[in-house]
């Protein structure tokens, strides 16, 4: 191919165009995220009143944080509940979505149909339909009725669990997971799709090699699929934690929302900020484990 333009080195090319490509996003990020974030941090230390001259803010120092951590009897309990919720929901969602993704990634006729089947809950759970259930205040009734219909309540789970003599934390875990099983399964849809996208990116060649070497399905999963899926899994874990922690049904979020409606914006912001720091700590731990354990074990491929 004959080129009229004199060739430039790749590095020069990158220097020249990289900034152009990323600038729209950076501008958007600064205007619609960074500025609001800092403003919101400021608000969590301030008292916000709406007067005749518009919105007035007055700096009050740590008063809002004192209010939520010392005066408010529910707040810390809510944070603890949220923490427990992470450990119940996230592993469950991960396992469900992983199993579904592996099943759905197989090559057979009608897999689009099956995938569609599993994606429908995502539309429901993220959409206006769920909103409708919630506003009608009938979520629990609906769920209870649905699980009745599915024959769930025919079995007395608590009695069965009691009979198994499991350690009490495990028993709590199972009964909580069961009571929320519908919400959890419905929440697994997006994760399933993310994992399928990850699975499809694993080169067939690797499976080919595994087959030639005589690996069975179990070994193939642990030595071929899993190591290459770690990156996707970290993404999925983070996504799931966010989904669980930032759900509008979450105790803290709804408490903060009530505060916003009462125009106590400062207290509401303080509630959310303290909670975010807490969730961020959990995510940092997960990143740390990922870096230390998995990247070390599988090197660059992870």
């Amino acid at each position: 191919m004959i080129r009229k333009v004199k060739p430039k080195s790749l590095e020069r090319l990158k220097e020249r165009y990289a900034f152009m490509f990323i600038s729209p996003w950076i501008i958007g990020m600064i205007i619609f995220f960074l500025f609001p974030i800092f403003h919101s941090i400021y608000l969590s230390f301030a008292n916000l009143t709406i007067g005749t001259e518009g919105v007035l803010t007055e700096f009050v120092g740590s008063e809002n944080y004192y209010k939520i951590l010392v005066t408010d009897p529910e707040y810390l309990d809510n944070v603890l509940d949220a923490f427990k919720n992470i450990f119940i929901s996230v592993p469950f969602i991960l396992v469900v979505s992983m199993v579904l993704a592996l099943l759905l990634n197989g090559k057979y006729k009608g897999r689009i149909f099956f995938r569609g089947l599993y994606f429908l809950p995502v539309i429901i759970a993220s959409g206006s339909v769920l909103q409708l259930f919630l506003t009608a205040g009938s979520t629990n009734a609906t769920e209870a009725a649905v699980s009745d219909a599915a024959g769930f309540n025919l079995i007395d789970f608590d009695a069965v669990l009691g009979g198994l003599n499991l350690p009490s934390f495990l028993e709590d875990y199972i009964s909580l997971a069961l009571s929320e099983i519908f919400m959890l399964v419905w929440q697994s849809g997006i994760q399933t799709i993310l994992i399928i996208a990850g699975l499809q990116s694993i080169p067939d060649l690797h499976y080919e090699v595994a087959r030639v070497e005589g690996a069975n399905a179990w070994e193939t999963f642990w030595f071929v699929t899993f190591p290459q899926l770690i990156r996707t899994m970290v993404l999925v874990i983070i996504f799931t934690i966010i989904e669980v922690c930032a759900a509008n049904t979450n105790g803290i979020i709804s408490a903060a929302y009530r505060k916003f409606n009462d125009i106590e914006y400062g207290v509401g912001s303080a509630m959310l900020w303290f909670y975010y720091i807490f969730v961020a700590a959990v995510m940092l731990i997960i990143f740390f484990i990922y870096q230390r354990v998995f990247v070390k074990k599988w090197g660059e491929s992870a």
Partner: peptide, 9 residues
């Protein structure tokens, strides 16, 4: 991490 409520105002 951020829920849209935080940034609303």
């Amino acid at each position: 991490l951020f829920n849209s409520y935080t940034l609303a105002i």
